[in-house]
């Protein structure tokens, strides 16, 4: 029973990691950039939610939508002005820029909103549901179902829509995608926007589930979600979902069974093991070329 209880806690944390990991993996899949500012977009999403609630009261869905739209616009702007001018240049240039954007976002929030923790307003009143011998808070159910809806929505976009097909084509062969008549710049913009909207969702869910936020809240979850993306196989969307869930569950299990000092170490232990044993990750495509 204790194990199941911890598993549910783990899935809650894991679905948040998964939502962030999706943005890393989608962006990497197309432009081969580890967008280190992605964790900070998640932080901005949480802050947008906080201010949205300040203006219109505790309404979960409108706050979520506002944060998603706001972060999508932010993602678009960052790609357009920070990364696009560096496309085709050595990759280290864009990577360094990503770190710069990350610091910029953190310090803008620190300067204009303040460096301290803010208590997140209650968006959803907490109640406990008993199923069998398990105690599950409604918040966990909300976090899990919102994350699931987002992931299904993403799968639908990627697999079924014209834009999604263009995204997959661009991630497999950028030049061939251009030759199909796909506007690759537009596809890259969409990818950043969708990834950022998913990170905003994670930001809101974290505000609901672990109700306090600060300008640096994106650093560690960002890194862990990156590890989750590598674990799942960077570039693979289902991989990011699985990787996120595994990461969250592993972390919660370590926490739940008494080794709280190892909480953050587990992520990086997993990273080292993955890189040693299966560098392409759980669902990463192996690189094979036919001549």
């Amino acid at each position: 029973m204790e194990f199941l209880q911890q598993l549910i806690n783990g899935l809650q944390l894991g679905s948040i990691y998964a939502l962030i990991a999706l943005g890393y993996t989608m962006v990497y899949g197309i432009v081969k950039l580890i967008n280190f500012a992605h964790g900070d977009i998640y932080m901005i999403g949480a802050y947008i939610g906080f201010f949205a609630v300040g203006f219109m009261g505790p309404q979960f869905i409108p706050a979520l939508i506002l944060a998603m739209v706001g972060c999508a616009i932010l993602g678009f702007i960052i790609e357009r002005f920070a990364y696009r001018p560096l496309r085709g240049k050595p990759r280290i240039a864009a990577l360094t820029t990503a770190l710069g954007v990350s610091l910029l976002l953190e310090n803008l929030v620190r300067k204009f909103i303040g460096p301290n923790y803010i208590a997140y307003p209650t968006l959803v009143k907490s109640t406990t549901i008993y199923i069998g011998g398990l105690q599950i808070s409604n918040i966990k159910l909300i976090v899990l179902s919102v994350a699931l809806i987002m992931m299904f929505g993403l799968q639908f976009i990627v697999l079924k829509t014209r834009t999604g097909k263009a995204m997959r084509a661009a991630s497999q062969d950028l030049d061939a995608a251009r030759l199909m008549g796909i506007d690759v710049n537009a596809v890259i913009s969409y990818t950043f926007m969708i990834g950022s909207a998913l990170a905003a969702t994670a930001g809101i869910l974290v505000g609901v589930a672990y109700p306090r936020i600060d300008p640096y809240m994106g650093i560690l979850p960002g890194l862990k979600a990156f590890v989750a993306a590598v674990l799942g196989g960077i570039g693979s969307i289902p991989g990011a979902m699985v990787g996120g869930l595994v990461m969250g569950t592993a972390e919660t299990m370590v926490l739940g069974f008494g080794k709280s000092t190892f909480r953050d170490a587990i992520a990086f232990t997993i990273l080292i093991i993955v890189l040693l044993v299966k560098p392409t990750g759980i669902m990463g495509s192996k690189v094979n070329e036919k001549v």
Binding site: R168, A169, D175, A176, R178, L179, G181, V291
Partner: peptide, 24 residues
Amino acid sequence: LAPHKIVARGISQVPEGRRIFPEM
């Protein structure tokens, strides 16, 4: 012009090495 605009005008290329989308 950008490649996608050139395709829209009626020029299409079969690239060297075929460059099909292998996972689709």
